[in-house]
């Protein structure tokens, strides 16, 4: 199904394009087809929500964009640069311009919260600088981290050991790290999966604020209501295929939506209801 957004985007061509996937296929060892020919273009300043049932390939998509995985076929371009055959140094520079908040396993439990957040800077500083950061933090660094943590309402945890935080707090530390990196693209894999609805709002508002500053935000979400409320564009994945791409308003027209899919895809809507 092609929504209004995509139609207008077709006219935009490559102007303002930040991410483009062309027929991206990802087959994991063992023959699991996680992405099955995905083509999509994302533009600067969009706030994109990716929905889809568990196992649809959402996480795989973000890891492909990040260069952690390489596509089995097809092409991926990020910030105008093709990831095919990209040199290690170039990939690092590209990564310092985009942040990824992983679904889980996203904090180093034995390091302090401050160090975990400052890891967002690792792409921009030298190894010597990184070593210094491990031993000693400057006044500015402390203030910077405290400010970001404060916005996510965990300002009091600055020097706690990260492993001692609750799941939701750890998730916010990971979000804080992504914010501190000050990237052009910010991607988050289910960033509000383990926080209460009110805290989820706090986190989503931070993403919205970043978006209003001109950053492209891409969020994998399971909470449809949040996606409808905050995102400017929705993608729905099912079994590695893009089954919806359009405005949240169009997604709301669930009856039309449901009627346009038979069999498997119908389950997508039910799973999210």
């Amino acid at each position: 199904m092609i929504g209004k957004v995509q139609q207008s985007n077709h006219e935009r061509g490559t102007a303002g394009e930040v991410i483009a996937a062309r027929n991206a296929v990802k087959e994991y060892p063992g023959g699991i087809l996680a992405l099955d020919g995905l083509s999509v273009t994302l533009y600067r300043g969009e706030m994109v929500g990716i929905l889809g049932p568990s196992g649809a390939g959402k996480t795989t998509f973000l890891r492909l964009l990040n260069g952690s995985l390489t596509p089995s076929a097809g092409e991926i371009r990020v910030l105008g640069q093709s990831l095919k055959g990209i040199k290690t140094g170039e990939l690092r520079r590209l990564r310092s311009r985009m942040s990824l908040v992983q679904q889980n396993h996203n904090i180093i439990p034995s390091l302090s919260v401050a160090h975990n957040v400052l890891m967002g800077k690792l792409g921009k500083i030298s190894t010597v600088g990184a070593a210094r950061m491990l031993l000693y933090l400057t006044r500015e660094e402390r203030d910077e981290v405290a400010e970001v943590l404060g916005r996510l309402e965990i300002g009091d945890k600055l020097f706690s050991r990260c492993g001692e935080l609750s799941g939701g707090q750890q998730q916010r530390v990971a979000v804080a790290r992504a914010i501190l990196a000050d990237p052009e693209i910010i991607m988050a894999d289910e960033p509000i999966a383990s926080v209460d609805p009110r805290t989820a709002e706090v986190v989503m508002n931070q993403f919205r604020r970043l978006n209003s500053l001109g950053k492209t935000v891409i969020l994998n979400l399971h909470q449809v209501d949040f996606a409808l409320q905050y995102c400017t564009r929705l993608l729905v994945l099912s079994r590695g295929k893009l089954v919806f791409d359009g405005l949240p308003e169009d997604y709301r027209g669930r009856e039309i939506f449901e009627r346009s899919f038979a069999g498997e895809e119908r389950r997508v809507c039910c799973a999210e209801a």
């Binding site: 992983q102 396993h105 800077k121």
Partner: peptide, 12 residues
């Protein structure tokens, strides 16, 4: 996966 998370920041 933690190594991947750290690399995702652009870290060498």
């Amino acid at each position: 996966r933690l190594v991947e998370t750290t690399r995702a920041t652009g870290a060498g």
